[in-house]
Design a protein around this nucleic acid. Structure first.
Length: 224
DNA sequence: GCATTAACAGCCG
DNA sequence: CGGCTGTTAATGC
């Protein structure tokens, strides 16, 4: 259980809720820390709650039947995710790994379903979030030919900075090149090359331990 | 060829 | 000093 003040800090969507709904939400949320490298869940686990990242960075990925690791995306502070598994009451489809020390907010599914059944504001948020995710997916299909390393890096950076999924995100993204590699499925050296190319094209600026986004839209639709 | 791993020097905090 | 970055060399698909 957390305070209403804390809820406002960590859950941007709570701005859409009534006072009564906020009370329900805060009572249904707890926090949990994970050390760097720890698994939050494995594919196939039954994990009840809906998840929000309070701080840290989480890699969402899976392992193919042949044992090849596939990384799908990174989840940064501010994002809430996993509603698909909660809504369908199904096991987790992906592995979740803490790439740094991480703190998660966890909303029990009973609370999630109560908000889903009773809160217009919460449903507005959910529709917006689903719509945004579909948009990302459509873009994925649109670039049907597979992206090179620079394309993967550009796309994953753009996703991290999606202003609908992470409203607080500003142009500054604190992330190492190694972490970008881990969430993009690209080696650190290739990330380094990709970032330099994207900097040349004025889409972002490379700093020490972080980058500055200059043209989010261009990163989103980057191909070669 | 392109991307990956391994290894290392240099730089920043 | 420790962590991160930028480069190079060798290796793999």
């Amino acid at each position: 259980m957390i305070t209403a003040e804390r809820l406002r800090e960590i859950a941007f969507w709570s701005a859409e809720l009534t006072l009564d709904e906020i009370e329900r939400a805060r009572r249904g949320i707890s926090e949990k820390a994970f050390a760097k490298g720890a698994y939050i869940c494995h594919k196939g686990d039954k994990l009840d709650p809906w998840l929000g990242v309070i701080y840290g960075l989480v890699r969402l990925g899976t392992v193919t039947q042949k044992g090849k690791t596939v990384t799908l995306a990174g989840m940064r502070a501010g994002i809430w995710f996993g509603e698909g598994s909660v809504l369908k009451k199904e096991p987790r489809q992906y592995d979740l790994v803490a790439l740094r020390d991480v703190k998660l907010a966890m909303m029990g599914s009973a609370t999630f379903f109560w908000l889903f059944e009773n809160s217009a504001g919460f449903n507005r948020f959910l529709v917006k979030q689903f719509n945004e995710r579909i948009g990302q997916f459509i873009a994925l299909v649109e670039f049907d030919r597979s992206l090179d390393a620079t394309g993967k890096v550009a796309r994953n950076i753009a996703w991290l900075c999606n202003p609908v999924l992470v409203p607080k995100a500003d142009n500054q993204l604190d992330i190492t090149q190694e972490e970008i590699g881990l969430i993009s499925g690209v080696s650190r050296q290739a990330v380094n090359g990709a970032l330099q190319l994207l900097e040349q094209k004025k889409l972002l600026r490379v700093g020490h331990g972080g980058i500055t986004i200059l043209d989010l839209d261009a990163l989103n639709r980057y191909e070669d």
